[in-house]
Structures are given as C-alpha cells and as structure tokens.
Design a binder for these strands. Structure first.
Lengths: 132, 132
DNA sequence: CTCCTTAATAGTAATAATTATTTTTATTGT
DNA sequence: ACAATAAAAATAATTATTACTATTAAGGAG
C-alpha cells in the first residue's frame, strides 16, 4: 500500500543539509548536488526539504516573508506554528545572553528570541476538532 | 542640499507598523493603508520599510529566504548582520525558557534563539577598511 | 526475476515576494 | 513663485516558492 519511498534524491538532499555547516537554502542545496546529479530539479529539492521537515528530520529556519516591528527595545516574540502570526512575548529580554554567546571570531551585538507555539485562536480550533 | 525628506507616505507606513500588534509584512501594511491612500504603491511600502529599518526606527524579522538545519537537538544560532551567513552557537539551549514565555492562551513548545553579530570573515574585512 | 502499482522525479508553468527602473509629483530652500 | 531634487507612482524585472503534468523508478506480488 501507499508507503513513503525514500528515493536517492531525498537521501542526498538530506545528507547535503546534514553535512553542511551553513544552514543552506534550497538554492544552495540544489547547486551543490547538481554537480553530481545533473538532472536534479529545484522543485524536487524544495519538496523534499519540506517533507523532511514534516517528518522531523530537518528544521526550517526563518520564513519566506519579511516582517517588521516598531518596538525597538529588544524583546521576544511568540510565533504560531499553525497560522504563522507573530506576537510580542511578555518575557524580559536578557542582554547578558549576548556575552555568553561569543564564539570564535564572532562579535555578537544582539539576539532575537522567538518562541514557537500555538496561538489562542488556533488553539481553540483544535479543541473544536477534538470535540467532534 | 540632499536632505532626507519625511514624506506623508513614510510617516503613515511607520505609524501603521507602530500601531499594529501583528508585526506586519509589507503586503499587510500596503493593504491596510490603501483604503485611505488609494494611490499608494507596494514598492513605496517596501522602500520605506527598509529605509526605516536602516534609520533604526523599525526592526526587520525573518529573512526572505528559508534555511534548513539537520541539527535537531534544539540549539542556538549566530547570524552575520553583514553577509547573512548562519552558524551554530555553542551556547546551551535552555528549555526552561519555554515555560517562562507562556502567556495568554499560547501553548509554547520550543524556541529559536538567534544571535546577531559580525562573522569572523566580515570582521576581518572591517579591520582592513579601518587600517586604510 | 518480471510485472504492476504508484510515489517521486524532471520538466515546466504559475504564483508570490522582492527589487530595480523610469517617469511624475511634490517638498524645500532660494 | 521657481528651481533642484527627494520621493512617489507606475511598471518591469528578478528571485523565491509552489503547482501541475508527463515520465521514471522503487518496492511488493506473483
């Protein structure tokens, strides 16, 4: 029956991300693998990256859409994993973290702390589904 | 001489972000303002959001390109503000933060902590410039 | 091992997000 | 008011991502 197949492409895409230290974009994975797999298509890379993320083998950083915030005092955010909305968290921003994060030759100036979860609205929807 | 002018559009765009609680995208700002400013163009919104961010009046969250990571154990990242590269930080992930962040009806499951700074490579470039 | 089913690919087209360009408008100093 | 030009509008172009369709190939049944 309809089992998920683990194709050579998916395996290579997964390994490419694992081997990389730069948290690559889809385009970067595509260009790297194309040398050895000339017929690989970018769509395949995108599809597999998302499938792998869905299976929990990869994590996706950042979104594909920029957002803006007028609250300048450094603070933290909550992002809904379901609808994508973003809200301010009430947690205090800990500037001391930046000092701890220093590493190698990096000069750290600030940080952004985003909590992933389910927003009130989406949480209610889930309850309804459960109740049905 | 070439002074920066603070146009009505820029003012309204800035205020729209300030008034919003949702950390809006450019598209969202555009749609909201269009009701009162039918001739406003999306390009103007983008340009002003970036100008405002450059001036330090706004902060830009997320980037326009998705990145992927095969390191599943929750961890923290370093991002270069100049070249955009991303690296793993050596700082431990503090799962306890998620509990502190709970708020309203939010269910918090995880967080992502990204430090902003200058990577070793870009740091060296700056030194060269200073030396010249 | 060969055949069949169908998941997954390649190739391509379409959409969405963002940036660049060109002409027009309007702010500001004189 | 007028000139100089920053910024806007309008539009085109680019980049990022997703959707669609025909073809390929993985994996189980015989």
């Amino acid at each position: 029956m309809g089992e998920r197949r683990f194709s050579r492409q998916r395996e290579r895409i997964y390994q490419a991300v694992r081997a990389s230290q730069v948290h690559p974009t889809a385009q970067m994975v595509y260009e790297e693998l194309r040398a050895q797999m000339p017929r690989l298509s970018l769509g395949t890379v995108y599809r597999n990256l998302h499938l792998l993320a869905e299976e929990g083998l990869l994590v996706e950083l950042d979104g594909p859409v920029a957002r803006f915030d007028a609250q300048l005092r450094p603070h933290t955010h909550l992002r809904c994993m379901r609808c994508g909305c973003v809200a301010d968290a009430e947690m205090a921003y800990d500037g001391g973290l930046d000092i701890q994060a220093a590493r190698d030759g990096w000069q750290v100036e600030s940080h952004s702390l985003i909590f992933n979860g389910i927003c009130p609205a989406c949480g209610k929807e889930s309850e309804h589904l459960k109740g049905a």
